[in-house]
């Protein structure tokens, strides 16, 4: 997307979503205005990009209050760092880097409180695993139990492992994109992806001691 365009607000929440912006001016114009001291121009940038930042934050936070805190932090950081914006890439890409790094900081800060036991499974999750054990090909990936299982598994991972699995395997981003988003070096991303997969297998292997695998 060029810097002369901006994505429409694609909120799906009906009444709760702010009305989409009608201002046709490009992001760069608002960025320049903010840098020159017109703080109020930042409101338009928030209005344009908040749906995407909210969607990103919801991948990492559990409660809505956590999501709002993360998004608020993203925009406060963006405002603070805006004088360093070099107009080489679209503002949206730069903002998403700030968003991903803020989500990672959030995961690290809440690491202890988020620890959950992957072995505490609901009845439906146990049934799904039993079904998978009997016939792996027939186990439905669309089942709610499978989704809640993967969410529990992701919650049990260390923040850096969770982030790399989310970006690399679930969102299917390239290593280069992950490097741009996180600022991690390419060898570090590869090492973390390798260790993250091993950590996931280890967590799943603990179920082996039970009856599922």
């Amino acid at each position: 997307m060029s810097d002369d365009q901006h994505p429409p607000a694609t909120g799906t929440g009906g009444l709760e979503t702010s009305p989409p912006t009608a201002d046709p001016r490009p992001d760069a114009e608002f960025v320049r205005a903010v840098i020159s001291g017109q703080t109020e121009a930042f409101e338009e940038l928030i209005r344009r990009h908040q749906p995407r930042v909210f969607a990103t934050a919801r991948r990492y936070a559990r409660r809505d209050s956590e999501v709002e805190d993360i998004v608020q932090e993203v925009f406060l950081k963006a405002f603070e760092r805006l004088p360093g914006f070099r107009f080489e890439a679209p503002f949206e890409h730069w903002l998403m880097r700030v968003a991903v790094r803020t989500c990672y900081d959030f995961l690290r800060a809440h690491q202890r409180t988020r620890e959950s036991s992957f072995s505490d499974l609901s009845h439906e999750e146990s049934d799904w695993l039993e079904h998978f054990r009997i016939d792996p090909d027939e186990a439905d990936e669309r089942a709610d139990a499978a989704r809640s299982l993967v969410k529990k598994l992701m919650d049990s991972l260390a923040p850096e492992f969770r982030l790399v699995i989310q970006l690399l395997e679930i969102e299917e981003r390239s290593i280069k994109e992950i490097h741009d988003l996180t600022g991690w070096s390419i060898p570090l991303i590869k090492v973390r992806a390798f260790r993250a997969r091993a950590a996931m297998r280890k967590a799943l292997g603990r179920l082996k001691q039970g009856k599922y695998l």
């Binding site: 979503t17 908040q50 749906p51």
Partner: peptide
């Protein structure tokens, strides 16, 4: 994909 719903007047 997670919802991109925004609370009213969040900006």
């Amino acid at each position: 994909p997670p919802s991109d719903r925004v609370p009213f007047a969040f900006e």
